[in-house]
Simulated scan of single mutants.
Amino acid sequence: MQYHTTHRQSLLKAAILWITFALVPLSLSAQNFKLNNGEGEVMVTGTSTLHDWEEVAEQKSGSITLDNTGELPKINSLKFTVEAESLKSGKGAMDKNTYKALETKKYKQIVFELKSVKSISPITATSDRYRVVATGNLTIAGSTNTIDLPFNLTIKEDKVLLEGKKPLKMTDYNIEPPKALLGTITTGDEIEVLFNTVWK
């Protein structure tokens, strides 16, 4: 009986060790990077009947998990968040209209979350830069759409850079384009999100 108990314990220890060592390469191969709010920029641009406009996101956060051990990097996860009321144009009245249109009292954040990577390819043969098309859910003002997000991915030793732009329509997210001066100034439905972000 003692032999069987000792043998069973030995097998259990061996199994635990095997599982531990089997998992080590996975944990080492996947690297997690956090968005650095103090670097880079996220900007929204658009038009109106009076002039073009732009707003910059002052509060952004997110994380990306990469496996860079293969021939091409693999993006395991990506989530990107902008605090809706951190969008600033430098004009208080315009910001107020923006927050009203986005219903920021109810919907605090704008969020993109990765579902899958459609394509990834090196920009040049010897570069650490890649052209990526990621499919994910974009949620604005409580409405969620699945979109393709194209961007350039640059991988350095201690950081990752994501750069790209994406045209959107406000009405696709049930947002009525803001108006000003009793409706005499109307914002165009089409906007563009431009981002140049640093992840560490």
Rank of each mutant, 00 (worst) to 15 (best):
L182Y: 01
I75F: 01
Y130L: 00
A30F: 08
P167G: 04
A93S: 14
L66K: 04
V24A: 14
F80T: 09
M94F: 15
T171A: 07
A57V: 13
V133H: 07
I19V: 15
K96M: 10
H51C: 08
A93K: 14
T186A: 10
F151L: 13
N68R: 11
M94W: 09
G46L: 04
I16F: 11
T69M: 15
G136L: 08
K156Y: 07
T98D: 12
K96E: 15
N76P: 06
L182A: 14
K105L: 12
K118F: 00
N196A: 10
M94S: 09
P122E: 01
N174Y: 06
A14E: 07
N68C: 02
I123E: 09
K96G: 04
K156M: 06
E54D: 09
P122Q: 02
Q59H: 10
G38S: 15
E41S: 11
K169L: 14
D95W: 08
T139M: 07
L153F: 02
H7V: 12
T124W: 05
L194A: 13
A84Y: 01
G70K: 10
S119L: 01
A15H: 08
A180N: 02
I16L: 03
E192Y: 04
D52N: 15
S61F: 06
K79R: 15
L87V: 00
N76F: 12
M170C: 08
Y107Q: 03
I191Y: 01
N97P: 02
L153Q: 03
G62C: 03
S10L: 15
V24D: 07
F112G: 10
L87T: 05
D148V: 09
F33H: 13
V160Q: 13
K91I: 15
Q59E: 13
K156H: 08
